[in-house]
Nucleic acid binder design. Structure first.
Lengths: 204, 204
DNA sequence: AGAATGAAATGAACATCGTTCAATAAATAT
DNA sequence: ATATTTATTGAACGATGTTCATTTCATTCT
């Protein structure tokens, strides 16, 4: 039993990423095991390692596609030029995406690579794209060229947002916070932006 | 070989939590395995399950102690009554604690219980204590009684802070952000507080 | 056509892991 | 001294990710 050539290497890659995505979508990343994926694609466990260095490589591939979809969703948001509604729109898009893809989202942000593995550079660059999209919100404040201040602003806001949603996911927030993540996130957006405008105003 | 009675149940609990804490401190939570811990305390793997329902129970116990130390550190901060320096002091304490206990911190905030397990109520109550300590910062703004607004404020700020440090830990921030987590955290503290004061000011 | 080559696919094997539980031995009660 | 209780064990179970010698097919060469 060998050398079937039912699929090319590229087809096999596609097949496995698609199957992995489906498993994660339905059962979460804990459901993704080598034997389970092998059964799903009709190959043996060993074959996975002909295509990916290890399971982390597969997860990187799945996450990469999720990131692509997120970038796409972000880029579809028109900027009005007024920071408040633009930030709100970005926020709503972010929260909606997370709500519609909870398990894929967890794989994206709650999963740590095994010891010794690192996110590849092209993967991190993709996250950079996400920030570039988001940074458009601050153009009215900092101008069209990204500056140190505008980068700090978007990174801080996004990290803050990530904190709210990740604590909500882990269940920590639920018992400590009386409000929904969405409420907290909107509050953060409004308040943080107000603070930015206050700091960037002529008086100071 | 059985029934040694070298230690009482309580002593055994103490022994195991201490050993687990040491292992986590040095090698992180991945280093904590049943056989490894058993060897460290001089008992068999099975004995762990006479004291704890499973390894998650042990991790809860270790985290609980870390939380106690954090609450203690928080309560040692004197409040001046001016939000800006008070929030800065709280922030510095938080960041210093994390820096001094990186692996214990990860066990506290980066670890998810296995499927089916939940953080016990008394554990979540301890996290509530932490918030109560932090909420003191906003007394000058919202008054001595916790209100919906003051709770939203501290939860949002803390979640935001958590987001910055957790992204930094996972390595995501490093490649995307040009600034250190401390810089972003201080920026968040200043800006968010400015936003709060602007929103709470008479004009609006 | 037939033999040689090369690559794709396998699946048993290895070293782990958390957890269980019948067996055992020591402490205690009778 | 005997019986009872109970703490402790460690082998066993079913998982896990990963490896790699072996197998088998498709291709190429003669």
């Amino acid at each position: 039993m060998a050398r079937r050539s039912d699929h090319s290497r590229d087809q096999l890659f596609e097949l496995m990423v698609a199957a992995a995505q489906e498993i994660i979508t339905e059962e979460g990343i804990e459901g993704l095991t080598a034997r389970r994926l092998a059964a799903a694609v009709g190959y043996s466990p060993g074959s996975i390692y002909n295509v990916f260095r290890n399971l982390d490589g597969l997860i990187v591939a799945v996450n990469s596609r999720t990131l692509d979809r997120l970038v796409e969703a972000f880029s579809a948001i028109p900027m009005t030029g007024t920071p408040e509604p633009d930030l709100a729109a970005l926020l709503d898009c972010y929260l909606a995406f997370e709500e519609q893809n909870p398990k894929l989202w967890s794989a994206l942000f709650d999963y740590d690579l095994r010891e010794g593995e690192d996110w590849p550079d092209w993967y991190l660059a993709k996250i950079g794209q996400l920030f570039a999209m988001a940074e458009r919100v601050f153009v009215p404040i900092y101008g069209p060229q990204p500056t140190r201040q505008s980068r700090i602003a978007i990174q801080t806001f996004w990290a803050g947002l990530h904190g709210i949603t990740s604590l909500a996911r882990s269940g920590t927030l639920k018992t400590v916070a009386s409000e929904t993540p969405t409420t907290l996130a909107r509050h953060l957006a409004r308040t943080y932006l107000a603070g930015l405008l206050a700091s960037a105003s002529p008086e100071q």
